[in-house]
Design a protein around this nucleic acid. Structure first.
Lengths: 397, 397
DNA sequence: CTATTTCCGTTCAGGCTGAAAGTATTATCG
DNA sequence: CGATAATACTTTCAGCCTGAACGGAAATAG
């Protein structure tokens, strides 16, 4: 350990505290981080000099005495962009360094494009959405509907948008954006979004399943994404636990549900309709799906003992009425570790907002924040003033 | 961060390096830890003064120049004791601070004793086994055949030795031993043993299943035990993936296998015999067990993406011939994340040796080692000179 | 207007580190 | 056998960093 290490560590602590607690006085920082006022003052002064923090003078003068001046992150100093590339829609959220959303946008995915064209299209869309802020763009994070391997970012297992498996896609995207691009599985980002701003904001350990065209999963242990080497972690849809060793994903995902209904002579277009229908012939289908889901939820509980399991994706809405019962059956099987089963609070935006979080983490890292201090930033109420539905709807181009 | 923090951190680094690399010169420590020679010298001097390290003068004089003096942990300064309490046998290993086994002993478990009597019996057995070293006893770690909750060490789910669920058991044990006692699930300790000294010594992330009277599991992520809150983690035997929602543990554990063979009119006493038998009528039983095991292995791969899955426990010997084929089927299901499936190298002693590791960690922690530095200590070849089978057999009282 | 309270900057002693210079101990060479 | 080179460690020293204590600034209370 070199001599400058303590300074770096304390700097990271102070910065993290400002990022998680919003505008805050120097004194408060000192008290809540166990740093001496002198140290806090020195570090804050340095951060102010660097332009990373700004003094916000709107301090509510509480008691008598010299009024405290609060400092906050210089939010406008940079912007980040979170992108959720799905099989049917691309969602983009641009936010400032305080995680406040500036622009949001939803566009249908041009699924027919080949890899280079898709990359170019996406890059242009991002540049256009970022608009005037382009010169302040710190980082872009893109969630893809496939597994992303850690060491080389190779994408695999993306049946719904196979183009993105082509390494050219990422290469071209980065080249055309001229910015570092963070990439991860869309379910991981969705979990990251829910973990900071949504249903899992109070959970230390949480699991998210996105049930749609496929079955995606994300896992967070101690508020940190657990990725594994190949990005497979949590994808219990691969379990050969169905009849004849069939995988659970075949049972539980959209196409599987539709196929099973069709077998009964009931053709549906939308898997959610299967659940909304009251046709009694569908009861075994629903039970079948529910049993598969129960195995998956049990696997998640046994694997990680999460406090919270979040369900997202198109089909999760249809499952909402069943959640209470599912939770009950889960508690019967594993009474020792009760996990709350909840649907995604951020709805369709969890992926894009999670990507924003990932991009912010990268940006914060460059500002000197240690990885260990990232677990709770940005502050969980950064979205408090935003109307999510408005953010989601106004944005459709 | 206070002013003395760097010193503590560097001290921990140096101590950890000596513990993982054995006798080593000051210069080597400096090079391999990126500390300056001056700092290493100062810290080593302090550790020598404290008696934690000793100079071992048997330095192999390699080149010309002043010969290096190597330092090593003062192994005889204390001893630790690892205990594996199983349903049928209690195994005890006493080791010094360098993890060299001193005494080992195996005794049948007096399963009929009630909690207080068992505690007293075990305490006396430990004291007797430690013998003359009692005054130097630093820590005792006891592995129990049940789930151990983190925050209050409550034991549950111990059908094979229900007495240990009684809080009195631990209380009396600690009282009579007059030492801090570490407690954990026996499978967790077995994994810890294999992780340091056995099949998983090179793995960062590993899972261990002990297949015997029940199905136990341990999980290590980044060479660190992952316990979860209630000690349930990894127990995929709870998955309701069997027919009619039966749990997999019922299928795969000893009693389940025997029951199934009996259904066919083939009464066995020992589940392992079922696998060794060539009776063709048993083929479906074997297939059934194998399918259940495959689901469990898949769950482990999907949950943690381990490099290594270790199988231990009484029945795992019988499964050895199947391991190759199981590994192959596993790779078919999850080709992206290949995990090696291997049987326990430490055999029946993995639990007790893992308990030794846990006890050492506690002891090392008291010597000033930071948790983060514990991931690779003690050195993995501490057992290199020991004949395991001798250790195991000579010890039966 | 003065006393008090609170916030914040400054000064200072002390711990700690790494670079560099110094000392110790051996092998090799003439 | 002495000089020299090589290697290992120790000592010295400048500098970074922290926390404690002090002092100035800005507001309220009376």
């Amino acid at each position: 350990m070199e001599a400058r290490a303590p300074r770096r560590a304390n700097r990271s602590t102070v910065l993290a505290h400002v990022l998680t607690h919003g505008p805050v006085t120097r004194t408060a920082i000192g008290q809540e981080t166990d740093l001496s006022p002198a140290t806090v003052s020195r570090i804050v002064e340095q951060l102010l000099d660097e332009g990373l923090l700004i003094e916000t003078d709107g301090a509510p003068t509480s008691a008598r005495g010299r009024p405290a001046t609060r400092v906050a992150i210089a939010a406008g100093r940079g912007v980040v962009c979170g992108v959720d590339v799905g099989g049917s829609n691309v969602r983009i959220v641009v936010a400032d360094l305080a995680a406040t959303p500036l622009v949001s946008r939803t566009v249908p995915t041009p699924a027919s494009y080949d890899a280079p064209r898709l990359a170019q299209w996406l890059a242009d869309l991002i540049r256009q959405t970022v608009g005037d802020n382009l010169d302040r763009l710190d980082c872009v994070a893109v969630g893809l509907p496939g597994a992303v391997r850690e060491h080389d970012r190779a994408v695999s297992n993306a049946p719904n948008l196979p183009q993105v498996e082509d390494p050219e896609f990422l290469r071209l995207l980065e080249k055309r954006l001229a910015t570092g691009v963070e990439v991860d599985n869309d379910s991981n980002y969705a979990l990251l979004g829910e973990l900071r701003f949504g249903a899992a904001r109070d959970a230390q350990t949480a699991v998210m399943f996105t049930i749609g065209a496929g079955l995606g999963a994300g896992v967070a242990i101690d508020r940190r994404l657990f990725r594994g080497r190949s990005g497979l972690v949590g994808e219990f849809g691969h379990l050969p636990a169905g009849p004849l060793g069939a995988s659970l994903e075949q049972i539980i995902s959209g196409p599987g549900i539709l196929a099973r209904a069709r077998d009964l002579g009931l053709p549906f277009d939308n898997p959610a309709d299967v659940f909304h229908s009251t046709d009694s012939r569908l009861v075994p289908v629903k039970q079948y799906v529910e049993q598969a889901l129960l195995i998956i939820l049990t696997a998640a509980v046994v694997a990680y003992e999460p406090e919270m399991i979040v369900l997202g994706g198109g089909i999760s809405h249809a499952l909402k009425p069943e959640l209470g019962r599912l939770g009950g059956r889960l508690r019967e099987i594993v009474p020792a570790a009760a996990a709350t089963v909840h649907s995604a609070e951020l709805g369709d935006l969890s992926g894009a907002l999670g990507a924003v979080v990932a991009a912010l983490h990268r940006a914060y890292g460059r500002l000197g924040l240690a990885d260990l201090d990232l677990a709770h930033v940005p502050q969980s109420d950064a979205l408090a003033g935003c109307d999510l539905s408005e953010l989601s709807s106004k944005a459709i181009a």
